[in-house]
Structure formats: C-alpha cells, structure tokens
Write a protein that binds this DNA or RNA. Structure first.
Length: 563
RNA sequence: CGGGAAAUAGCACAACUUGGUAGUGCACUUGGUUUGGGACCAAGGGGUUGCAGGUUCAAAUCCUGUUUUCCCGACCA
C-alpha cells in the first residue's frame, strides 16, 4: 500500500472517549473507529491486523482437523427458547421483530445452531468425532462496554464445537483443542495463562480460560508459582482455616455509635478485621438471604450461586436491609435474623467474634456459632493473595487478565435440550457429548497492543503487523529517492513481503512518527544516502539505525524470523 | 439498573457563572519560505453549538424534556 491516495489517517491527539491504552492507540492510528458504545469499525489497517490474527487461528484450527463453516447471525428467537437459554441471556441478547412480528435475536453464541447442523450428519457412532467452527460476529448487549475492543457489543469470535460419542472421546477432542489453543497463543507472543474457570452461561463440566495478562484485565487470575495451579478468582477454592482455640465467652450487646463498616469497627474496637463476621443481605432469585463471612474477606457471588443453584444475585438495597434487620445498613447480624442464612465454612471455626446486632448503633461481641442458626454452609469467599494454594499450600499470587480464549466441556447439556442423539454399537440411542471452544480475535488485537507498545505507539509482532515493512521516502521530489523507494516496494512485494510506502508530501518527522504509531516491525528509510547506494534499516523496537546496501534490503529482511 | 460528568468544525478544547455577530490549537485549501523526528508566514474554507420545546427584544449561555457518550458501581463468555 502506498499512502499517497490511500485511505489512511492518524490522529495527533487521543480521543476523549477511550479509556484503555489499546483503545487509544488503535483509534489514534486509524485502525478502528467507534460507531457507538461498544461497536467499532475496522478500518483498512485494523482489518489487516484482524485478518492476520484470524488466519493464524484458522491455520492452527485446520491443522487440528477442524472444518470451517459460516453461520447466520440473525436467528429466530425460538431456538434459544427450545434450548432453555432465552431466559439465561435475558437482556444480554439483542432482540428484534420482522415485518410479520416474528421474534428474532442476534446470536450471542452459536451452540444451538451448530447442534442443528450436527443433526444433519450424526446418525450413528460412526459419524463422530468431528469438530466444526466458524469466524462470525457475536452480539451481546453488554451493560457497560469499555476498554476499546475488550468489552464490546458486536465482536468477531472464532467458535468451534466438537461432537463425540462419550466423555472419554470428548476428553480427547478437548485436549486437541487445548493444545491447538496453546500453539495459537504462543504464535501471538502473548503473555497468557490458562486458568480454571466457571462455565457460566455455557453450562457443562469443565472450562478453562486463556487469559492475556494485562493491568486492565477484568478477570483476576489466581496463580501458584510452585505447582502451576491457576484459576479464575471466580472459582478459586479457599483452603479452610484451622480451628481457632479459645475458650467460649458469652455474647454481649455493645454500643457502637455510627460505626457501620468493618473498617470503622476494627478501629473503634481496636481489633483485627478477622475477628469480625460480616453479614451481607442479598436478593437471590427474588428471595432474601444473609451471607456471613469473615470480616477480612470478600464474598464470591459465583460460589454462592453455585451453592444454591441460583441464577441471579444482587445486594439488597438499603430499604430492604432496614426492613429485614430492623436497623440501618451496617448493623446486620445473624442472631435472630428471620431470613435464610448462608455461612462461610470458616465461621464454624471462629470463636468469640463480633457481629451486627440488628439494632442501629449496636453490635454483639463474643458471638459463637451456637448463638444463631444457619441454613447453608460452604466456601463462599474470595481467595486473597498469599492464601495457601489449594493443591500445594504455597502462597498464591494474583494477576489481572483479559479472557482471549475459552474452552468448555459441555457434556450432554445441548444434545439433551435439543435432542441430538446417535445409535451406538448396541443399537441404543445415546446423547452426543459436546465441547465448545471460543477465541476472540478482536480481544487478541487489543491484548497485543496492551502488551506490545511504547510511548510512541504500537509495536506489532511481525506475524500480525498490518505490513511487515514500512518504507519512508524522505523527499518525494528527489527523483532518485522516489525511484529507489518504488523499486524496493515492488521488489519486496514480489517476494511476498507486505510493505507500506509512505510517499506522502509531508515532512520526514511526520512520517517517522506515523510509522512508529502504527507499529510496523521494520522500517526502511530512503533518504540522502541513496546516492551512495545506501538506505537505513531499523527494527521498531531497536535504537540501532543501520545503513545497508539497497541491493541487500530484500535479503536482509528475508532473514528476519517470522517474515 | 443506581450514582456522577459531559455533548460546541474531522480531532482536542474555550466562550456558559453574569444571555448580545461562535473562538483557539491541530487537521484542511491557496501562495511563499522551509525540508532527516509532529516547520514558519500570509490569506482562506468548514458550525442550524446533540435533538425538541419553553423563557426573552435577543439563547451555545437560563428552564423543561429527550437522545447519546463517558466515568464509578451493579452486571458480564
């Protein structure tokens, strides 16, 4: 691509409505442009990057034996009703009607449709295994899109689905995909972690996430540097504490005026936060529950939902709390509370703790487990950094990550709800066992920028860069320079090396800055020294600017790794 | 969905408090001087101030409604 007379622009300043580094850089470099909240155009350069990412994924998927196809995105709502997921998605699904008032949705994920396709093929155990996939757009009406391409409402996803006769066979298909994903993310040079995750709206038994490590990550990764155990905070199990040995005291009401938070209370009573038990009132599937956990711990809503088999869970508002506890927010406690109580497993081991008294400005001290009743018990708290690893008891460390890929063992969830069966060797009808595997190319693009940039702009890894080489023509009135720049451009193209030529009528500084901003890996400068048969060669991240012979340019570039 | 902020040229912003011809920088056009890391001088073009009402002789400015965007939270493969 020659920049003169091409659709190419950059912005000198950051736009105000992007909050992440990747969002800012991608918009400023003219790769993407926001249309509305969480919806972006991919402009020519951005599309090239996205296509490069897709092609790497496609190559590895095809090598694994998967077959590509393409599904529609405008789907009759009915297919999600029959799978039972219409309600799961709720408002996350974009929904619309056609001219006859028939209900349609924009597909947020495509398990249902792939099952439809699989039904055409699968009759017998001989028809499996196979894996089919697509690159398609997904639509999810996120409550709060943010971070540029990271949380968006319309996005490209590679989604693959495996179909097997039983769990063992599915395990094999799953492992093939996991290995394929590792190869894919290795090729992007991403710093990533594979973590255990909750299966969320997909359902199924096992799920692992591929998380790109970045500061703006929306997920917290719990990592053991000793045994390699890694999981999403959502599902990270806590190791139960040891029984605290203390002689039991009897509970006592104390006056704690205007001390409603654990923080304040710890200061007021000059005690450690771990001596408190906090009581949180939640509305879970339209019923109120009290959740009790140690004062220094945060509630893990995923664990609570799993414990109760619940779908929705929100913190009760202050009116409800006051009605239930008969006290203003901050003084809730388990003693004589009339709603079901869920306690964290550690609480039974605590002695003489402090709880709210359900009376404004009062707490109980020296409360013990025998002082109140509870209905559910389990691990309902978040892991904390330096907690012992669930497997090897080494202190855990935390990182932030962006989920760029996710693999699931779905079991027979969809084959049951959508009636996908096959005949086995004994002529018996059985449900197909499925796996599904997603990768978000747009998120990968953003994650790469988050991980590979400097104060001048993006630093694309060679295999995803929109062009491998950028030629800067210093003076486009100098015939010699023009000739050489064009000759190099043609030569590189003839050698299948993607090249961009900046032949615009602009000052050199502007061209250098744009080149750095868009992040091409190799820069060739055609300037004064071309009279001596020399041009400059510079890698984006290196300071060294080498003079090389014009005749050596192609050879030098071809020797670079990954070209 | 709760709380907060904002919407003025392609981009970033000023003018709003105290109503009176809509301005600056970048970008763009023309001419000139420059020309290896975001040049300078001069002259220009580009706006129904998000939208709809209201108050007023007069609204970017005050009031009401509405839409959109962003932030914090909630939610989230």
């Amino acid at each position: 691509m020659k920049l003169k007379n091409s659709f190419f622009y950059t912005l000198r300043e950051d736009v105000k409505d992007e909050d992440s580094i990747s969002g800012k850089l991608l918009v400023r470099s003219g790769m993407i442009k926001k249309t509305s909240s969480g919806i972006y155009m991919y402009l020519p350069l951005g599309l090239k990057v996205l296509s490069n990412i897709e092609n790497i994924i496609r190559e590895e998927m095809n090598n694994s034996g998967a077959l590509e196809l393409l599904m529609p995105n405008l789907l009759p709502e009915e297919i999600y009703i029959s799978s039972g997921r219409r309600d799961n998605f709720g408002k996350d699904m974009f929904s619309l009607k056609d001219r006859y008032d028939r209900h349609y949705v924009l597909g947020p994920t495509h398990e249902e449709l792939f099952v439809e396709a699989a039904k055409m093929k699968i009759k017998s155990y001989k028809d499996m295994p196979f894996n089919i996939y697509q690159f398609g757009l997904k639509y999810r009406d996120e409550p709060r899109p943010r971070y540029g391409l990271i949380r968006v409402r319309e996005f490209c996803m590679k989604d693959a689905y495996s179909f097997d006769v039983d769990d063992d066979a599915c395990d094999k298909s799953y492992q093939i995909m996991k290995d394929t994903y590792k190869r894919i993310f290795d090729r992007f040079n991403l710093d990533y972690k594979i973590v255990l995750a909750s299966s969320g709206a997909m359902g199924g038994s096992l799920s692992e996430e591929f998380q790109a490590v970045t500061e703006i990550g929306e997920d917290t990764l719990v990592i053991c540097d000793n045994c390699g155990y890694a999981s999403n905070l959502e599902v990270s199990p806590c190791v139960p504490i040891k029984e605290i040995k203390e002689s039991l005291k009897s509970k006592e009401l104390i006056h704690t005026p205007n001390v409603g938070t654990i923080e304040d209370l710890a200061n007021y009573l000059k005690t450690d936060k771990s001596k408190f038990v906090k009581t949180l009132i939640y509305k879970i599937d339209d019923k109120f529950y009290a959740c009790l956990l140690p004062g220094n711990r945060d509630l893990n809503e995923f664990k609570v939902k799993k414990l109760l088999g619940a779908k929705e869970m929100t913190l009760a508002d202050s009116e409800d709390v006051e009605r239930i506890t008969k006290a203003i927010v901050g003084f809730a406690g388990p003693v004589n509370l009339e709603i079901p109580i869920i306690i964290d497993e550690d609480i039974v081991k605590m002695k003489n703790f402090v709880v709210g008294a359900n009376k404004t400005d009062y707490h109980y001290i020296n409360v013990n487990i025998s002082d109140f009743k509870y209905d559910y018990i389990g691990d309902i708290k978040n892991t904390l950094p330096n907690d012992p690893c669930f497997k090897c008891h080494h202190p855990l460390s935390f990182k932030k990550g962006i989920e760029v890929g996710n693999i699931f063992k779905l079991g027979t969830k969809y084959s049951e709800s959508l009636d996908l069966k096959y005949l086995d060797q004994n002529n018996e009808l059985k449900h197909v066992v499925m796996g599904c595997y997603g990768i978000g190319p747009g998120r990968i693009m953003a994650a790469i920028v988050e991980q590979f940039h400097d104060d001048k702009g993006i630093v694309w890894p060679i295999n995803v860069a929109p062009f491998k080489v950028g030629i800067v023509l210093i003076d486009n009135k100098d015939e010699k320079q023009v000739e050489i720049a064009n000759k190099l451009y043609t030569e590189l193209q003839a050698n299948n090396i993607e090249v961009l030529l900046d032949d615009r009528d602009l000052r050199a500084g502007v061209k250098f800055n744009d080149m750095d901003l868009i992040g091409l890996p190799i820069r060739i400068v055609v300037g004064k020294k071309c009279n001596e048969g020399l041009v400059e060669f510079k890698m984006r991240l290196e300071d060294e600017n080498l003079n090389i012979k014009i005749t050596d340019v192609v050879k030098t570039i071809k020797n670079i790794k990954n070209i």
